[in-house]
């Protein structure tokens, strides 16, 4: 694996854009890098599940708020595409940066979360990263993670899933401060690959942890 920021694993990444606004879909299509191929589009939960099953893309750009399904929006698409989660990765997109939206799609299986206001280059970069198996954390998502897991590092005796290690906390803090992965690596004197490993570990904890504080934190924000 190379250590370049956009270590493109394949010449062309096939993506499906799921968003109920046609204007946004076409705008995003125009913004994406030329080596990202839009293989399909969908505007509702049902359409999305069908298109994803038929096209089997590398990455799905998934809007959090979608009509149809059980009313859960992006979460329903993830639930409907559960068998494909091994081969197809989901990157959540939203105009909302409310905690409940972000955390619920991540816990449903999305590999990353970006807001719709970021530039085309940044989205393309995020798509490549997710396609490569890494997680994409926006500063705000990192903030939520720090809020949910607390800012104290884990003791060794603690359940591994329930706390972040000191290194993971450092990485999350730097991301919350607006650092890119490259800047994080430089700041901590580690390789980008190590940063990606830490971020993936945090993502896994966020998805799997049943930590008391996390559930309470989520309940306070009516996530559960």
């Amino acid at each position: 694996m190379t250590s370049t920021e956009a270590g493109s694993p394949a010449p062309g990444i096939r993506v499906v854009i799921v968003d109920d606004h046609a204007i946004f879909r076409s705008g995003l299509k125009a913004d994406l890098d030329p080596n990202i191929i839009v293989a399909g589009e969908a505007g509702t939960v049902e359409e999305a599940v069908a298109v994803i099953a038929a096209v089997r893309p590398d990455v799905v750009l998934l809007d959090v708020h979608l009509p149809g399904g059980l009313g859960g929006g992006g979460r329903d698409v993830l639930a409907g595409s559960a068998p494909l989660l091994g081969s197809t990765r989901f990157l959540a997109l939203s105009v909302s940066d409310a905690a409940e939206d972000v955390v619920s799609v991540i816990r449903a299986g999305a590999r990353g979360y970006v807001t719709k206001t970021i530039s085309g280059a940044e989205i393309s970069d995020a798509v490549r990263r997710v396609a490569g198996g890494d997680a994409v954390f926006s500063p705000r998502l990192a903030g939520f993670v720090l809020d949910a897991f607390g800012t104290a590092p884990a003791d060794i005796a603690d359940d591994e899933l329930d706390r972040l290690s000191a290194r993971e906390l450092e990485v999350m803090r730097l991301i919350a401060r607006g650092y890119s992965y490259k800047e994080v690596a430089k700041e901590l004197f580690i390789s980008i690959k190590t940063v990606e490993t830490h971020v993936s570990a945090v993502l896994r904890k966020l998805q799997l942890s049943s930590r008391h504080e996390l559930t309470r934190w989520a309940a306070e924000r009516r996530l559960l």
């Binding site: 206001t117 705000r140 903030g143 720090l146 800012t151 919350a176 401060r177 607006g178």
Partner: peptide, 9 residues
């Protein structure tokens, strides 16, 4: 100019 704020605690 856009200013993104993230707060923890």
């Amino acid at each position: 100019h856009a200013v993104e704020v993230v707060t923890v605690g």
